[in-house]
Computed example of a mutant assay.
Amino acid sequence: MVTIDDYRAPGPDIFVFPPIIDGGPFWFTKPVLLAVACAGLVIAFCWAAFAKPKIVPRGVQNAGEYVYFFVREQIAKPFLGADTDRWMGLLFTLFLLILTWNLVGLVPFIQFPASSYIAFPGVLAVAVLILKVYLGVKHQGFTGYLKNMSVPPGLPKWALGIYAPMELAHQFLFSWATHAIRVCANMFAGHMLLAFFSSVGFWFLVEKLSPLGAPIGLLGVVMTILLTAFELFIMILQAYLFTMLSAMYIAGGLRAEH
């Protein structure tokens, strides 16, 4: 008789991939291919939507303008104000790229979110951090930028030695970590949950079907469906949050944060 003890849940090894080409570069794996392919899809989408825009948008242009308007009004404008349009190219691209990296985790036969690898959102977060520091030094001066970000108005002098180092660590280290890890951790956890419940359904309904195991398998299928819908929401939300933080950091470079 097959028991639940025979089942082995998927583990972190589902994030480990061999090179796509035998004997080829060790780094050229499925996640790398997906990340590059998603970037190509974003370029193709933008080209199809905006290369030859019509007065009355239709099809891909209509979808592109809808997403562009959403990013502009709901993400960029609350932080950047009059500078919004200047940075929309970057923010619009970031939103589409993170969203595409996330959504491939739900595509049949692919089913792996590229953004669950910290390297990919990490590189984007580093680029945003470098841009933030560059803009801060350019618009506020080196000394003024450090002072504006680490010394809030009214801070007592005795607290400066405590607060300023903590704030600088937050600005240059923790802000990057939370920017990158937030999306990565959510995609990692979501992929693990979907892999677990889908494997439960397959094992107890297909691989080892039995009267006692069938209810467990059905539960796995139902949870997979529910979690897929929830994960879709999380994927969109994480793209939104990553782009929103990018807009906030850029605004912090353009203008004093305190």
Rank of each mutant, 00 (worst) to 15 (best):
D6G: 10
D6K: 05
Y7M: 06
Y7V: 04
A9W: 07
A9P: 08
G11K: 07
G11C: 07
D13E: 12
F15L: 10
F15V: 09
V16I: 11
V16D: 06
P18C: 05
I21D: 07
D22I: 12
T29W: 06
G40M: 01
V42N: 02
I43D: 11
A44M: 10
F45E: 10
F45N: 09
A48D: 12
A49S: 14
A49F: 11
A49T: 13
A51W: 14
K52H: 11
K52G: 04
P53G: 10
Q61T: 05
Q61P: 04
Y66C: 04
Y66F: 11
V67A: 14
Y68G: 10
V71W: 09
Q74K: 15
G81N: 07
R86C: 03
L90W: 14
L96R: 14
T100A: 13
W101Y: 06
N102L: 05
V104C: 07
G105E: 00
V107P: 03
P108A: 01
I110H: 03
F112H: 06
S116R: 09
S116T: 11
A119F: 10
A119K: 11
P121N: 10
A125R: 13
A125D: 12
V126M: 02
V128P: 00
L129K: 11
L129P: 02
I130N: 04
Y134S: 03
L135P: 00
G136L: 00
V137G: 02
K138F: 04
K138A: 11
T143S: 07
T143L: 04
G144S: 14
G144L: 11
Y145A: 00
L146D: 00
L146V: 06
K147S: 09
V151P: 00
P152M: 05
P152G: 03
P153S: 08
L155Y: 01
W158Q: 03
A159V: 00
G161V: 13
Y163L: 03
A164W: 09
P165M: 03
M166A: 14
M166E: 07
H170P: 02
S175W: 02
A177N: 05
I181W: 12
R182N: 14
R182H: 15
V183Q: 12
A185P: 04
A185W: 12
G190F: 04
M192H: 05
L193C: 08
F197N: 00
S199W: 02
S199H: 07
V200M: 12
F202Y: 10
W203Y: 15
L205C: 12
E207W: 09
K208D: 06
S210R: 06
P211S: 03
P215A: 08
P215D: 07
L218K: 08
L218I: 15
I225M: 14
L227C: 04
L227H: 06
L227G: 03
A229L: 14
L232M: 12
F233Q: 15
M235T: 15
L237W: 09
A239Q: 15
Y240T: 12
Y240A: 06
L241W: 06
L241E: 07
F242P: 05
F242N: 10
S246P: 00
R255G: 01
